[in-house]
């Protein structure tokens, strides 16, 4: 079942087309990461899905409803972590969670949410007495206290240190295991690869890729085998085309690098020459991403 269905979504600001015919479907229980450079339309898309922004055209259904006509019962099923917002600084984390829990029909127990987000030791502190990472975790706690079916995370780990980021990933993975559908935006490709079942890349208001992280990585091209032959020695005779680089190394892009490595090892044994700087490099998600948004 699709939790989110978007067809031909359009939104413009003046003459700028923020979203220009976006199609998107998100199945229940999956995690989708929306990537794209600044100005690609990510925030506009997420805000339309959350019901915070109107659209110019197209159809949008989120949990079976048009977000522009979202009811209280509909919002009861959502959790939202905004990209940027301040918390009431005069209330403690526990008080804020108590307050928010009271908005929902079937909230989770506050101590349970504090434990899950690693905030037990910070429960009686106010947001202004917390670190940036702790405040972000509190925002996540506020978003899950209502027992959401669908969770929007807008750059959930921006400005986190590596440990805090890893803990948040574990937390989101736990939510996924519990069957919660997650839609997140991020600039962090590693985060997208770690958390998402699917990555949607937006560029200039259009979806330019919609695939799993391995499929997206594969789209960037085959692995590259690179090596250097000794000075004055002719390169080994190979069935694949070699690229010569400015530093004198040679490389070939091959779908099955083991075949080429076997050939190179045989050449070494038969010729008595040694290859140096031998490496096999797989294209990264980052390579694929930059290829797509170029």
């Amino acid at each position: 079942m699709d939790v989110i269905e978007v067809n031909d979504l359009r939104r413009a600001y003046g003459r700028t087309r923020a979203l220009d015919g976006v199609d998107l479907a998100v199945q229940a229980g999956t995690t989708v990461a929306v990537l794209g450079p600044n100005g690609a339309g990510k925030s506009t898309l997420i805000e339309i899905l959350e019901g915070h922004r109107s659209r110019d055209g197209g159809t949008v259904r989120v949990l079976g409803r048009d977000p522009e006509r979202g009811t209280r019962a509909w919002r009861d099923r959502l959790g939202i972590v905004l990209q940027e917002s301040r918390l009431v600084s005069e209330l403690t984390a526990r008080e804020l969670l108590d307050l928010y829990a009271g908005y929902y029909a079937a909230p989770r127990p506050v101590p349970e949410v504090l434990a899950e987000t690693g905030l037990v030791g910070r429960a009686d502190r106010r947001p202004e007495q917390m670190s940036g990472g702790e405040r972000r975790r509190l925002e996540l706690a506020l978003a899950i206290v209502g027992r959401p079916e669908l969770l929007f995370l807008d750059e959930p780990t921006a400005s986190f240190d590596p440990e805090a980021r890893r803990r948040t990933w574990e937390l989101v993975a736990g939510l996924q295991d519990a069957g919660i559908t997650v839609v997140l935006t991020t600039h962090d490709l590693e985060e997208a690869a770690a958390l998402a079942d699917r990555i949607v890349v937006l560029a200039e208001g259009r979806v330019v890729a919609d695939a799993s992280p391995p499929a997206l990585r594969a789209a960037a091209g085959p692995p590259v085998v690179r090596f250097r032959v000794p000075v004055g020695v002719a390169p080994p005779p190979l069935r694949v085309a070699l690229d010569r680089h400015a530093d004198g190394t040679l490389s070939a892009a091959v779908p099955q690098p083991t075949d080429l490595l076997r050939t190179l090892c045989t050449w070494e044994e038969e010729s008595g020459h040694r290859l140096s700087e031998l490496s096999v490099t797989c294209p990264t998600l980052e390579d694929a991403y930059f290829e797509l948004i170029r």
């Binding site: 959350e50 019962a73 905004l82 917002s85 301040r86 908005y103 506020l142 209502g146």
Partner: peptide
Amino acid sequence: AYLRLTGAGKRLRGTPLP
């Protein structure tokens, strides 16, 4: 003004609070 400009109101509009 704080409610309107800091995102606090926007966060509340994402909850079932009228």
